[in-house]
Design a protein around this nucleic acid. Structure first.
Lengths: 344, 344
DNA sequence: ATCGATGTGGAAAACGTTATCGACAACGAT
DNA sequence: ATCGTTGTCGATAACGTTTTCCACATCGAT
């Protein structure tokens, strides 16, 4: 018996197309055709080659294939870190990828996050066009990115950006929160505002104003205090509001972090929540459900963000011309224990 | 001025090494040497080439590089789906990857999960040796996998497996839970057991027995009822236990899912928890903290699992011979409102 | 002047695929 | 008999890197 047919594995341990061809007694061209179902191979040989393939357990090298073709059928999702927000987005993205013919891989910047600025650009240019056909960028604040290919940003804060974006409707969310409080009878509503450089903060504040305007309630400017999305600063702001001569009966914080700080300050001052003070936050982070009392807040549709981002990305990759590349998704109220009717 | 230096981009939009070489007036070999810091190129030309590289924004194609080299310096993490458990593991893995020189990518099976059996094998053989140097497998139950390279499984259930495994100590966790109840004075402790085919269930039950033995409390076999990790079956089991002639004062469920079912049944029957019945679960899923009352449970060190799995994988990739390839990590008690001293 | 060192650069093969194109046989039609 | 036609298959050139090896020049020493 000839030992010619002996399968010699590569140093890698992988079976290569060469080996399949040799074992089947045909050329690599033929094997390739069989695999890709190209026309021009007798059904007889096709079956034989397939038999050899499964016997040897051959799997095509994705790397070689990607080098030859330009498409990889993989889309990447880049996150700075796996915190709750990006994790939820990731889940939504995973849902959307089903049956699309694409695969999803998630990259964390973790590897070498020496300087935060520009990591997106670098990570992107590394993978784009070689490992993935397009990318979803999940980032706290989008710095502008020179992109080599289709990119969609999921960004809770920036809003408008030069690249296609899916974001949640911060304006509507702010309105929702304040409408909720107005509906409970509150008329003096304080607000702890967010980071002034982020459009999300600006929009949430605008929502606060719009809700007041729509209800015909004048805004007392002294009730808006800067919290900067920062717990310490928010604590300070809460103290300012709650020790006023005529303190508000409710506080809308631009951020759950800030809202939780407000709850702490209220507890320190012996102010009962929601008896004497209602508090509403924004984001619905996991801690909020566990707070005492559980925090009423505005929920961002995080999974939906991920879902719509990959849907949009796939459309872009397929060469479709999208009319509006800025999607904003609606937020929802999550009413919990920290808000109640005024003067109860 | 000559237009020779005009940069012609590929169809891909990427700058290639050819273009850099042409622009710099050297050969591709030289460019490659400069990039990889090989010996044999004058510092003068080196600087010049580097200047051209940054001017053109060149980034090496990872695909081509991977095809040539056998190492990719990427490790993959395969999950069936992004549920809470695998997500936490992922976070731990991301932590462990920092500064290791590797990058982490996460694959979800989502793409084509037509048949669940064997998806691990197929996904693995697709990426292994071409896209990644090794993989961490996060899977509900490890089916044995023919692996082409270094693989570490993170498996909450199977325990012993042919491949290197990181798992949590189910035996110790079971003891912990029952010790907690014994410490509260309970002497008749029911158990809702898990799926009999999983070693995790077996070990948790053994922990139950060990704790009893250590405390010198005899085990009443009629207090062990099969729950099978399934909510409906667990509900049934709870009813059986709570309607006995001499019902237990506490129940240890092999699973948070089962424990929550027990809470529901107790509520239906008008049994006060923790007044007349203490309940302890296992896993600490997110819902448990939100249950009424919040569930006392045993927490698996999920992040640590991920962390140790990549640490082990990196060691394996580096060719280290590991003495013990089966790591089991300790669990911890999370005491919440569903357990209290007996007969309070 | 000639010979080896030494320093610098490029040509070419290889990694594992896929696509193009041509070779060759078989065969029915003229 | 000759000529397209059709069906089957294989050689070969890419894709963008890295590495090995060879060529050439310069220079100090005999």
């Amino acid at each position: 018996m000839s030992e010619e047919h002996q399968v010699t594995t590569t140093h890698n341990g992988r079976v290569t197309m060469q080996q399949v061809a040799a074992e089947a007694g045909v050329s690599v061209s033929t094997v390739s055709k069989v695999i890709n179902g190209r026309y021009g191979v007798a059904s007889e040989t096709s079956e034989h080659v397939n038999a050899v393939i499964s016997r040897l357990g051959y799997e095509a090298s994705l790397v070689a294939r990607s080098l030859r073709n330009t498409r990889t059928n993989v889309i990447g999702l880049l996150v700075m870190d796996f915190e709750p927000f990006s994790t939820e987005v990731l889940k939504g993205a995973a849902d959307a990828i089903r049956g699309s013919g694409f695969e999803l891989v998630a990259y964390s910047a973790g590897g070498g996050v020496d300087d935060h600025i520009g990591w997106e650009s670098r990570a992107l240019s590394r993978v784009m066009g070689t490992l993935v056909d397009g990318a979803v960028l999940v980032t706290p604040t989008v710095t502008d990115v020179r992109h080599t290919g289709p990119v969609v940003a999921v960004d809770p804060h920036t809003g408008r950006s030069s690249l296609p974006t899916v974001t949640s409707d911060n304006l509507q969310g702010g309105r929702l929160a304040v409408d909720h409080l107005l509906g409970l009878g509150h008329r003096r509503i304080g607000m702890i505002t967010g980071r002034p450089d982020l459009s999300s903060a600006e929009l949430r504040e605008q929502g606060y104003r719009d809700a007041h305007a729509a209800a015909g309630v004048p805004v007392d400017e002294s009730l808006l205090v800067l919290g900067g999305y920062d717990p310490e600063q928010a604590r300070e702001a809460s103290r300012t509001l709650l020790t006023m001569a005529e303190p508000p009966s409710a506080i809308f914080a631009a951020n759950d972090i800030s809202a939780l700080a407000t709850l702490e300050v209220a507890a320190e001052l012996g102010i009962d929540v929601p008896g004497r003070l209602s508090v509403v936050g924004f984001d619905n982070i996991p801690e909020s459900a566990l707070a005492d009392p559980p925090l009423t807040t505005v929920q961002q549709p995080m999974r939906q963000l991920g879902h719509d981002a990959v849907a949009m990305l796939i459309a872009l990759i397929s060469g479709a011309e999208i009319e509006d590349t800025h999607l904003t998704l609606e937020t929802t109220m999550v009413a919990r224990g920290s808000s109640a009717a005024v003067g109860r």
